[in-house]
Design a protein around this nucleic acid. Sequence first.
RNA 1: GUGAGUGUAGCUCAGGUGGUUAGAGCACCAGGUUGUGGCCCUGGGGGUCGCCGGUUCAAGUCCGGUCAUUCACCCCA
Length: 424
Amino acid sequence: MKISAPRGTYDLLPNETRRWQALENKLRAAAALYGYGEIRFPVFEHTELFLRGMGETGDVVQKEMYTFSDKDGRSLTLRPEGTASAARAFIEHGLHMSLLPFKCFYIAPNFRYEKPQKGRYRQHVQFGAECFGASEPQADAEIIALAQSILQDLDVSLHLNSIGCKKCRPDYQKNLRAWLDDRVSHLCETCKTRLERNPMRVLDCKVETCAAAASDAPAAVDCLCPECADFFGRLESLLDEMGVPYVRDSRIVRGFDYYTGTVFEFISREIGAQGAVCAGGRYDGLTGELGGPPTPALGFGMGLERLLLAMEAKGVILPDEATPSVYLAPMGAAAAKICAKLCHELRRLGVTAETDLCGRGLKAQMKYADKRGGHFSAVIGDTELETGRINLKDMRTGDVMGCGASAADIAKTLHILSEVELEC
RNA sequence: GUGAGUGUAGCUCAGGUGGUUAGAGCACCAGGUUGUGGCCCUGGGGGUCGCCGGUUCAAGUCCGGUCAUUCACCCCA
């Protein structure tokens, strides 16, 4: 029986991985620009962390977690999202006593037992940024600007909302529930259940009758307490000032319980039904929920598979770094030995070098060198061994250049040739 | 968890109404005199037709189940 990758997971073959590395480099550079340092946390955590962090009502916690017991009977869970881990680390290392704000980012896999489809996997990678200890809307504007700087060349729009703090949100929910109760006959079955637990999710429903019924429901932004309204207004004017485009969207409701105040999503219409490329918001109550010092905080997660889809849709190509490379084609056993040694020395000099590993004839070796896309090749046979001179061939132009048969000479010549090429 | 579409070679796909040894293109390997790749020519390897069962003298082809995959719902990055 053939064994394949588990459902909803995938392999990245070397060709594909290059795109990912280029993207990751771009993300690290963007994060550095905004003063976010990389954090790495474990792939699994105590199940309790996610139960307390994300709230027990959501689908993710209720039925999508990869939870298991280890040999000592501890209940552990493969991380379904990054924020809880970041908050746990913040608390665990006493970072509230460190220089605040504490700004960190991660590029890490998340695990959710979902039914796979386009842009949705059971293991997916998120770039996330989190900021702890910042209470001002400048922090919201900054972190949104970070996400925007990454997504700005794509067909992605920023949807912004505020769902209020722990003071005004319950009032809003009460109003909304009352309002929806009057129209309950228009709601779908799932929305009727949502009405109880989290009426704000009804605003998000795509069923036509629900959308129609909710179309002029009271919006959270109109029911904020004076503090939240003021905060949201200041955030909007900061974004205006920075030239970050956004639309107010009262349907933006995040799925995790820890969100308070600012919430946002970057949405693409080009990548299928799973259009949320990036989503986040404020979670001022989370560190307290987790038993740590109450700390204002905010963050976002960005799905890299979806980001790559959006980049593909827009035809964005990430640049590949070009380094000089050479293929040495030996003819005969003596030459093969020399080529192996030369390759070894060339690599120590920082030159990408390859030689025959399959015992192939010259023609087959040249084909191999061609298909690998290396820049240069050189045949090494009896003549070269006798004279100590080789011909370096530019595989793109066919030009050859004589060169000494030592690793140092080859490396030097390659660097000269490569630089000439760049100027062209 | 629900719905629909699709499973034939490494990849993309042909294989009317069931009928001998299942094909093509690309890719791969070897050769076209052990001194040079891309083009061309010749040859070669590689398939339990996703899996299990059923109907039939006979199933890649029809039926059922199952698994996988794709898209959508739901949910979310």
